[in-house]
Design a protein around this nucleic acid. Sequence first.
RNA 1: GCGGAAUUGGUGAAGUGGUUAACACGCCGGAUUGUGGCUCCGGUAUGCGUGAGUUCGAUCCUCACAUUUCGCCCCA
Length: 417
Amino acid sequence: MITKPKGTYDVLDKEALKLQKINRLIEYTCEFYNYDYIRTPIFEARELFHRTVGEDTDIVTKETYDFQDRSERELTLRPEGTAGVVRSFIENKMYGSNMPRKLYYNGTMYRYERPGNGRNREFTQFGVEVLGSNDPAIDAEVISMPYHMFLELGFKDLNVRINNLGAKEDREKYKTALKEYLKPHLNDLCDDCKKRFETNPLRILDCKVDCDSEILKNVPNILEYQSEESKNRFQKVLEYLEFLDVDYEVDSHLVRGLDYYDYTVFEIESDAEVLGGASTIAAGGRYNNLVETLGGPSTPCIGFACGLERVMLAMDAFEETEKRPLDCYILYVNEEEKIKALMLAQDLRLSGVSVDYDTTGRSLKSQFKEADRNNAQLLILLNSEDLKKGLITVKDNLTKEEEKVDENEIIDYIVSR
RNA sequence: GCGGAAUUGGUGAAGUGGUUAACACGCCGGAUUGUGGCUCCGGUAUGCGUGAGUUCGAUCCUCACAUUUCGCCCCA
């Protein structure tokens, strides 16, 4: 038997219903927030991700699916959504008009990592990018929108953590101070952090190994290394968040795994136990330099990404998704009735009624069972004798009441119910 | 990438180095000559993750591989 590749999974039955529900909410919500749908390629030039996500990040150094096509182009399956959107923004010269540009995407991403609960090699992210606005109000909107979507889906214990990384200069100043502080303690840090000290000292802040140590608890606070402008900006974001009823918590140790972030960064976590260690369901931040880095005009941007698999997992804890009931099920026994069933089903479907009938040669008894499994509201019983008289029996599956309806009026009769 | 656990039908699962692999659910059929959902009866794995090895003989022992899962790492 051929099986699915490691780290992939099939979405079906209950999972499919949950995913459809989420997807509908996404489309609906984005429409009301005035975000336009964008779809970018699943693979891009490898260079794109090295330039955006960061040369030294784990995502790029050990988690990408890299390949060459038949013309030896160096390609990479996208590990995240922002890079492609920004590339498209520049390539299509979207900066020319209609600013800010508010976009959303919803598609599969690929990372070569150890699969586990809420962790797959092919996974789905829904995300939003706002390009061309530096207003703190848009920061608040981009945090508030997923937060309220999760509430809508039934999430209870949401935890929003937020931090301000500031401008590049602020961060450089802070990095220097941080390294100065950490230098004498270097030997007490974990092995990974020793490496990070040189490559990416900020990441030491959210190290899971060392987080309980006194060294990290007393680390200089990044929020104190911000310019006045950056501090004021962050205060505005927090103020707006309160007006939007977002329950947040400032966490000065929050940094993100991707290099392109500056100013506001945030994560939304769920306490749902089914998630286990994978509790972050959405995360994002501002990236005011990325467009310029990729050769576009200086454009301030912010966005977030949300892992749909984790949302689906967490939904198990509070949600029983059920398939929509079928409007009609048609029962028949002989060929003459079957032909009638086919035609009637088609007419009803074209009239906006959901209909099905047996195609496995089941006994009449089994057809009744099948109708119940589909939760059919109405049973249409075809009977050769009645058909000769132009009559069709319609049975309400709840009240069990039957009625013989004239063949010519059957569509109207059913549609009007 | 490192360490632990698991892998028996459509599903949940018992079980044993040796003829026909329990039980339950589901599904199919019948009792009910074309109106079911209750009940009763019957049917339903040529097979115990894959490949090799030990053995007279393996689903059960050994090894490798795959997949899943739990922790580490990382992240959505």
